[in-house]
């Protein structure tokens, strides 16, 4: 059984090809301005990497992410909330709280032992706690996204950034820079500020271990550490790139749909 999951996000497109319940290949690309184009490119590349020649080789495809309605070849679309939950649970079945930090939103899902969503909260009204926030901070600090993570881990006295609004936080950071505060401390302050936002979202759905981070920003180890400090529990490290959790979830649901379909067809 070969299936595909295609997660067209605001910042990146992710595709996963799954063969008999295992990941055959995955690809991450920056999003283009057309979701259908992003979907096509990322899926084609994932197919190629898996040694497959065309979309026809995929028996079922589920689209997810902001562009999920624009994945022209998908058999159906499922919300990224459900997909990230399913993907994180498949990667580590002890996970009960999923924190997904994407390009333009962040979500926290509490899930059950089957990976189904029990409750969720979502921030998609402002840039606080999203990739966009980190991008604007990285620009002001002139350190790149990776820099925020690596620099912050070196800090011994993180600066305090009270604003969670990216516009106000930016002016706060500029003030800190002009006060001569070390960049490492400001970077740690940025991660602490986002971790604070995530902390309150986690507490809204209820903190249940294990906690896992997914989405592009999950690669920020400084953020993971800051969140651990705030939550008072450790964050489970996933055995796969956390950015593809949504696409994995989509592929898992595709496999499920496919087997249900074949059950329904009398032999």
């Amino acid at each position: 059984m070969i299936v595909g999951g295609c997660d067209v996000g605001s910042a990146t497109g992710k595709a996963v090809v799954m063969k008999d319940g295992e990941i055959a290949s995955y690809i991450i690309i920056p999003s283009t301005t057309k979701p259908e184009v992003t979907a096509r490119i990322v899926m084609d590349e994932a197919l190629k990497k898996a040694g497959l020649s065309s979309l026809e080789d995929l028996e079922y495809i589920v689209g997810t992410g902001y562009g999920r309605l624009k994945v022209p070849f998908a058999n159906e679309n499922i919300s990224e909330i459900t997909c990230h939950a399913r993907g994180a649970h498949w990667l580590s079945n002890t996970v009960r709280t999923v924190v997904d930090i994407g390009g333009q939103d962040c979500k926290v899902m509490s899930i059950n032992d089957k990976g189904n969503v029990l409750e969720f909260v979502m921030n998609d009204r402002c840039a606080a706690g999203t990739g966009r926030f980190f991008e604007s901070m990285a620009r002001v600090l002139d350190c790149g996204l990776e820099g925020i993570s690596s620099l912050s881990l070196k800090s011994e006295s993180p600066a305090i950034i009270t604003s969670q609004c990216s516009v106000f936080a930016e002016s706060e950071v500029v003030t800190l820079i002009n006060e001569g505060i070390e960049i490492v401390d400001i970077a740690a302050g940025v991660n602490n500020s986002v971790a604070g936002r995530l902390n309150s979202m986690v507490r809204k759905v209820g903190l249940v271990e294990d906690v896992a981070l997914t989405g592009g920003c999950a690669k920020n180890e400084g953020l993971a550490k800051a969140l651990e400090d705030k939550l008072g529990v450790s964050v489970k490290k996933l055995p796969q790139d956390p950015q593809i959790a949504g696409a994995i979830g989509a592929a898992l649901i595709a496999a499920e749909k496919l087997s249900k379909q074949s059950e329904a067809i009398p032999s």
């Binding site: 499922i78 919300s79 459900t82 969503v117 409750e119 979502m122």
Partner: peptide, 18 residues
Amino acid sequence: AGAGQLRTRAQAFLESMG
């Protein structure tokens, strides 16, 4: 404004209900 945000929540809610 932002039907997309509402759509995602409503869809996820229905999915979570199975």
